[in-house]
């Protein structure tokens, strides 16, 4: 005979499965791989050029990273669209809308932080981008797969450490090339972490939420 306890248990199962079904992977593994490779390539090029000591031979910080963002975001959107078509879902699914709503405030805050950048302030901006990107991923953690939650935690932790470290060592690093330093921060965080994320999620990407 059906009891209210059984009914409650069945409703719990239904709720839990519906939540699982709305888990949304906002970053696909191939897009993370592309972004990681591009980020490391830009950082490596900037480092290499800084060693040449040729006047004017510098990788512009803002332009190059906005280009990496545009290329990676474009690729990510295309891959998400293709995945949605494969599953017979609309591209702007409920999961995507939830993810965008949760992530957007921190991402916009990162964009606004860029406006305060002055010449030589790029390491601070890079650190803030790392921190706020982590916050944006953590904001979507209720309906994100575990791997994205971990990526958010790592970015948040690293961004916080970079900001603290920046305050402590700012004086001793005053003589160093600030733009190259910022490129290296971006390459070591956005580049390396996305490569690790892509490697961890790639084999399981076609199945459930990893």
């Amino acid at each position: 005979m059906q009891t209210s306890t059984e009914a409650e248990e069945n409703l719990r199962i239904i709720r839990s499965l519906m939540e699982k079904a709305t888990i949304y992977r906002a970053i696909s593994a191939p897009a993370a791989l592309l972004g990681g490779v591009l980020a490391i390539a830009v950082a490596a090029t900037a480092w290499w050029l800084s060693g040449l000591s040729v006047t004017g031979a510098k990788v512009p910080f803002l332009v190059s990273w906005l280009a990496v963002l545009a290329i990676t975001s474009g690729a990510n959107l295309w891959l998400l669209w293709r995945d949605a078509v494969r599953r017979g879902e609309p591209f702007a699914s409920q999961g995507m809308r939830l993810a965008l709503r949760a992530m957007m405030p921190a991402l916009l805050a990162g964009g606004f932080c860029t406006l305060i950048a002055t010449d030589g302030g790029w390491p601070l901006i890079a650190s803030l981008w790392v921190l706020l990107y982590g916050v944006s991923l953590l904001a979507a953690s209720h309906f994100a797969p575990k791997s994205l939650c971990w990526l958010g935690r790592v970015f948040f932790l690293c961004g916080s450490l970079l900001l603290v470290l920046g305050i402590w060592v700012a004086d001793s690093w005053r003589g160093t090339d600030q733009t190259t330093l910022a490129h290296l921060i971006m390459g070591a965080t956005f580049g390396l972490f996305h490569l690790i994320y892509a490697a961890c999620t790639w084999p399981r990407n076609t199945g459930g939420a990893a």
């Binding site: 059906q2 069945n10 199962i13 239904i14 499965l17 519906m18 699982k20 079904a21 709305t22 599953r87 017979g88 879902e89 076609t206 199945g207 459930g208």
Partner: peptide, 26 residues
Amino acid sequence: HEKGRLGIMTLLATRPSWSFQDLKAQ
């Protein structure tokens, strides 16, 4: 009213269609 079938019906109610592999994974 059976755990397995309830799970299937719940997942099918969330999307227009599900592949066998996706259902199995979930």
